[in-house]
Design a protein around this nucleic acid. Structure first.
Lengths: 230, 230
DNA sequence: TTCTGTGAAATAGTTCACAGCG
DNA sequence: CGCTGTGAACTATTTCACAGAA
């Protein structure tokens, strides 16, 4: 990931904010007016002191003896995360994954409406997916300008990922969410995060293997062992 | 995430192993025989001492003056991650996301073949997706036993995620990869990891906002500001 | 009294730097 | 001589514990 401006808050703190926000929205939906750090920390699965420190590091204050005002906290955390406005996104690569993402309502409902779809394959260009007409990646600069896009989701085959990323950066995109199996190199001013299914499964595999070994090996198909996948 | 047996290696170390493995497989594919910690660390984007310590913590040794044997390292890291055998998986929820995952070739190529698809909707059961016939979730126990499954990917709507997880755990599944917008509660012996698109985008949003603020705000549609998404 | 905000302690993780092996 | 393996220093992060505000 590129580093951006040096900041005084740790990435661990930033990564917890979406979790706090999700719980806060649930509390707000249930018309809860205030919440203590103990309660919210319990809901979010963190230590109360960690929660208080996280909020304090952004200057977000509660009321001693009372707790935090839920609606105010939602507002403040949203501002800190940059969620006081929508972030329209473009999906690059309209294969199975791209289609799934375009149809995923969890995006628009959380402020990330899909505004454009791009592909390099002429047989896909012109298709309508989730109500959006697929455009050719050669037109990316025009699309980015037209839709005021800052974020692109890369859902191409792995071999095309770097190329797609370069094109989008050249078209003015400054944040990438990389959904492919390979890492993408970017200039320092561009932010990237990668979501990789196989990496997650490999980590799961480690802990799964370890905990079943500790229990005596039940549940793991060890009889299938010793055919390395490399 | 559930904790499993207390271990002496940090989660940070485990999370780096898949990255090392990916680079090692590239080196192996290019017939590179040995690699120094400096070189591999550079490829993986970590400090060389961190790499050496990570490997040493699993008892994986190199040769002083030479480096590490690439093929041996691939083998050892695979064993540590539990990748010396395949991990057949089941996808629960055959909507857009489930279909995308079922068709994603990055899974089988890395040792996680999709062996079954489950859904609760009778109009989907019986469909063939990616060469696999969708079965009803009521039959999950039989499916898990038949295919010797240990890992389930939850790709249902968020509201059904906990339910789906409970059913799969009751059917003998011991690792879950949760692809929905909500957290899932599980017993201690079950491992869970969650991949959430909106969380990733929110973190991107934070850094994007911050770095464009540092550059004077160019590139962000600030004129659209102030319509909170909550 | 309750619960925040935060020094200070504890813990975890990273990096340096170098002894010593091949 | 080059590079690993690791004590020790350093940095980051979490947690405790409590003073003090409401």
């Amino acid at each position: 990931m590129s580093e951006g401006a040096a900041s005084r808050v740790s990435e661990a703190t930033v990564a917890r904010l979406p979790r706090y926000l999700a719980r806060l929205l649930e509390l707000a939906a249930a018309d809860t007016a205030t919440v203590s750090s103990d309660h919210l920390a319990e809901l979010a699965g963190v230590n109360p002191a960690t929660l208080r420190r996280d909020l304090a590091s952004f200057g977000i204050a509660g009321t001693r003896g009372v707790g935090y005002d839920v609606r105010y906290l939602v507002y403040e955390v949203s501002i800190v995360l940059g969620l006081n406005h929508e972030w329209p996104i473009v999906i690059v690569g309209v294969g199975n994954l791209g289609r799934a993402l375009a149809n995923y309502d969890g995006l628009v409902s959380r402020g990330f409406p899909v505004r454009a779809l791009l592909d390099i394959d002429p047989s896909v260009v012109g298709d309508e997916v989730a109500g959006i007409t697929v455009e050719h990646i050669d037109d990316s600069a025009a699309v980015v300008a037209r839709e005021q896009l800052a974020v692109a989701v890369i859902a191409t085959p792995s071999g095309s990922a770097q190329n797609a990323a370069d094109l989008m950066i050249g078209s003015g995109i400054s944040s990438l969410l990389n959904f492919t199996a390979v890492a993408i190199e970017v200039p320092d001013v561009v932010e990237v995060r990668r979501v990789d299914l196989a990496t997650e499964l490999q980590i799961l595999s480690f802990y799964q293997q370890r905990s079943s070994a500790a229990r005596g090996g039940a549940g793991v198909p060890l009889e299938k062992a010793l055919s390395p996948i490399c």
